[in-house]
């Protein structure tokens, strides 16, 4: 028989760790914000992000995307570590013991609470070796300069390292549609870099996300 008293002892029965009203704290008068563990957070004003894009464009030209992607990879590496530490401490179990659905829900909430937009993951192509991340209302796409190619390089970098560390495989991430180009959401494909190699040239040919996925699955 299930004993409620026992359940109450076992069940951490905790809710949403990343609920925005409790996760983001700080002393606003002093301009300090921190998360609920006391780690400092930094707010990036739009003008700073615009300046980063503009300055990189001027300094390194067409390589700006690679620089931002690598910044994202570095960011993602630390993000994964902190994400794992915070969650395992709060829910009192290692990340590996969390159910996949709980883990994903925390990841989605974390992304949203940090103000990076809304993210969802699609594992329909799991058997073919790919996962799709979709991001709506991306803060980065919003301020990115208008280009004829996707511009969320930060996010691509973050996602590639985050999921590489999670899965233990060296995953690459490439964006195939972008809100800055009028798409309804930003699509990112995650997979082994060898298999994602042709995507860049398909993007240059003007192929959309659906067509790219079809070609990838046939390859």
């Amino acid at each position: 028989m299930i004993e409620v008293a026992q359940l109450l002892k076992d069940a951490s029965s905790l809710g949403n760790y990343f609920a925005p009203d409790v996760y983001v704290q700080g002393d606003y008068e002093f301009g300090l914000i921190e998360n609920r563990q006391g780690s400092r957070l930094i707010a990036l004003p739009e003008v700073l992000l615009q300046a980063i894009y503009a300055a990189l464009e001027k300094e390194v030209g067409s390589s700006a995307g690679i620089v931002l992607f690598n910044c994202g990879r570095w960011w993602g590496k630390n993000f994964y570590r902190r994400f794992g530490e915070e969650l395992s401490k709060y829910y009192d179990k290692p990340l590996a013991h969390m159910e996949m659905v709980e883990f994903l829900q925390c990841f989605k909430q974390c992304w949203k609470t940090h103000g990076w937009g809304r993210i969802d993951l699609d594992f329909d192509y799991y058997q073919q070796g790919f996962a799709i991340a979709k991001i709506w209302d991306s803060a980065f796409a919003k301020i990115a300069p208008q280009e004829n190619c996707p511009t969320c390089f930060f996010e691509s970098g973050i996602l590639s390292t985050f999921f590489s560390q999670l899965t233990g495989c060296d995953l690459y991430c490439i964006q195939t549609s972008c809100e800055s180009m009028g798409a309804d959401c930003n699509n990112f494909i995650l997979g082994l870099s060898e298999r994602l190699k042709p995507v860049q040239s398909w993007l240059k040919e003007g192929q959309n996300h659906t067509a790219i996925m079809e070609r990838l699955c046939r390859s």
Partner: peptide
Amino acid sequence: YLEYRILEWLSDIVKAH
């Protein structure tokens, strides 16, 4: 409070299961 602290988080978990 109810929406952000638990429902938003739990609803996808319930659906997935």
